Computed example of a mutant assay.
Amino acid sequence: MGMKAQVWWIRNNGFDGPAKGGARLWDSRRRESRRRGEELFRHDVDNFELCVHNLLAAPGSNKRKVCRGRGKYGHHGRTCGFGTTKNGAHKRGRRTLNPGYEGNQKPLHLKTPKLLPSQRDSMKQDPYTPISLAILNMCDDGDEVDYMELFVRGLPVPSRKRFDRVKIKASETDEFTVKNLTVLAHAFEPAAREKIEENGGRCIRLSDVGSLPIDEKWMSTNEFQVGGDSKEDAAEAAEEKASEE
């Protein structure tokens, strides 16, 4: 006689669950009596005293365990309520046939190839808050704007709750008409930088830490080594020392 274990943590696949006549509502008669108000007398503190002998469990808290395999013609005897159509692993305990099992072939999650590192990187979200050229088109000629300036003006910039850094984004088909616009951002797409500079504007990149403008002097002092002088500064110091001598 085949008996199947009642394992509740496996996803329901038709055994004793919603796929067979719908989910069961345990203690439905007790729930209905409470819904009708037939147990309101228990809340009458003047006429009812709650004692140990008249305590009742909550509806559905005491679910009767199904006893299987007891009697050939019993309610859950013989096939234990799991039917006769599926044999083999379907009858020998629910844990022996896991969800996703495919008989006589490798499962889909094992056949699917792994993604390459470049493919995984392409699926990552861009860690910048995007600002389009359509928003910058709402500025006036000769303005100097950054994210907070656009936000204070009430322009429809996206929220910066997730990513503090800002990127100016554009495509080749976007139109940009503002003249002499100075934009401060952490990153610029090539198309956006080209369109801003074509109209006489400037693209000033901000550092990732501190959001301070990165100028040419900053690049020269940090390009070659960290914590020391660059080649240009070393040459200037040598010239000054030679002139003093």
Rank of each mutant, 00 (worst) to 15 (best):
A185Q: 04
S159N: 08
D174L: 11
I135W: 02
V183M: 05
T173V: 07
I135N: 00
S132W: 13
K179L: 12
E189I: 08
E189K: 08
Q125G: 12
A170S: 14
N137V: 03
D143R: 03
F176R: 02
L133D: 04
V183R: 01
F176Y: 11
M148A: 13
L136W: 00
M138G: 03
D146A: 08
E144L: 05
T129I: 05
T182H: 10
T129P: 00
R153D: 03
A185L: 04
T177A: 10
R153F: 07
P190E: 14
Y128L: 01
R162M: 12
D146P: 00
A134T: 15
E175V: 14
L133W: 04
V145W: 00
R160A: 06
F163E: 15
A187M: 11
Y147E: 06
P127W: 09
Q125S: 14
D174M: 10
N180G: 08
K179S: 00
Y147D: 09
L184F: 11
V178N: 03
V152Y: 12
D143S: 07
M123I: 10
D146T: 11
D141S: 13
M138A: 04
A187D: 15
V152L: 14
V183N: 01
F163R: 03
P127C: 12
K169Q: 10
V183Q: 01
A170H: 08
